[in-house]
Amino acid sequence: MSKQEQLQQLLGELKAALPELKEIIVASSDGLPVAQLGESEIATRLAAMAATAHGLGKRIATTTHLGNLVEIVIRGDQAYFIAYAIGDKGILGLTTPAGSNLGLVRLEAQEYARKLAGIL
């Protein structure tokens, strides 16, 4: 299986575990889209924004002595955007509706970020 197929398969598994997820993207650390599940027209933009949010989040974490960055959460009144580092080469970003079980989303997303790190 190609790297792309393996990534796509993992995103499919994550979506199966958390059907309420709307967008799932894998971005490179410098904001290029690598894999996606969801609306293709926003995936490219979301990949760049995920890299920006993550890069800035890392800086805020070090500047304010939070330790290492664990996750980025952006909360709207209708949904969340959540992002995790995939090693140091990429970022997993996803959106999930406001009523989601955030604890479960976090557990699964972090687990898949680890799995994705083995492929990227």
Binding site: S28, S29, D30, G31, L32, T52, A53, H54, G55
Partner: peptide
């Protein structure tokens, strides 16, 4: 304050600014 991330494109340097 910098926001360097590892560059995955061939841009002639190892890192690039992603936020500011």
């Amino acid at each position: 304050v910098d926001t360097d991330a590892i560059a995955t494109e061939a841009i002639g340097k190892p890192t690039t600014t992603v936020a500011l």
